[in-house]
Nucleic acid binder design. Structure first.
Lengths: 137, 137
DNA sequence: GTATCTGCAAAACATTTGCAATTCT
DNA sequence: AGAATTGCAAATGTTTTGCAGATAC
């Protein structure tokens, strides 16, 4: 992790009212550099060697805090796992049912007016697709 | 439950290779008449008075069987709950974060070609939106 | 020195599994 | 009787909570 990046990450956290502790910086850095939409467990396993005292509780606490502060979003593609994404712009997610990877695709559901919801106050748009990716076909 | 409906339900189950036991008929009937996208718990609580020996295991078994046989689909709008829908056509779901109800909206993501996924084999399209419904505003 | 943050252990839930009892044909 | 279905109890897995110790300003 280079220092320029570290400073940029600290700034994002501070600008959103989150104190930049080492654990928080590392978790946010992991999400921004690895665009793999990791689960809590994947984040924990990846960072544990470096942050030897890290606990899953802290990963949960931190991710919930980030979501609350709208620094990241949680995404659902499978019922038994919440995944996290540091890209908070509207886009879709594609999960390959063979290799289990989750890919982004550019698609903004908010751009498609939905008549039935015209009198609702919308806070979140989500689109996801499942299938088999080109590498697995 | 009228008998004409019962026969129609039996036919759907049989046509899809599912033996129409009382529990299965009642669960499928509940899903088709109550278009409320219930959770396992809601289905169990609603049917338990009528089917006094019903167990949650049977509700789980039955719903998993229905999904496997593509008689119903499971939908995700919230991380801690799987909901079920007897409408298997492509459409979207809107969850009101105040009253917690889940509404349908007509929207077929498959009609919107996504260039990045043109070389993938797609099996499922999902779109969901969160916000506050007109009744709660 | 007081607030906050971290992390262990336990609790809370949802879902699955093993297996015995029941039901259906 | 034989095969499938049901349902209890226990196991599994994920997320949350309570709280004590560590850290930071």
């Amino acid at each position: 992790m280079n220092l320029i990046n570290a400073d940029a990450i600290k700034k994002v956290l501070q600008d959103n009212g989150v104190k930049p502790s080492l654990q928080r910086i590392k978790i946010y850095e992991f999400l921004t550099t690895q665009k793999s939409h990791p689960t809590v467990d994947e984040i924990f396993v990846s960072l544990a060697p470096e942050l030897m005292t890290l606990s899953k509780t802290t990963v949960y606490n931190t991710l919930n805090l980030f979501v609350e502060k709208k620094i990241i979003t949680s995404i659902l593609v499978e019922e038994n796992e919440i995944r996290y994404d540091s890209d908070i712009t509207n886009h879709g997610h594609f999960k390959c049912i063979k290799c289990k990877k989750v890919y982004d695709f550019s698609y903004d559901l908010s751009k498609h007016a939905i008549a039935e919801l015209s009198d609702c106050a919308i806070t979140e748009y989500h689109a996801y697709i499942k299938g088999i990716c080109n590498k697995c076909l």
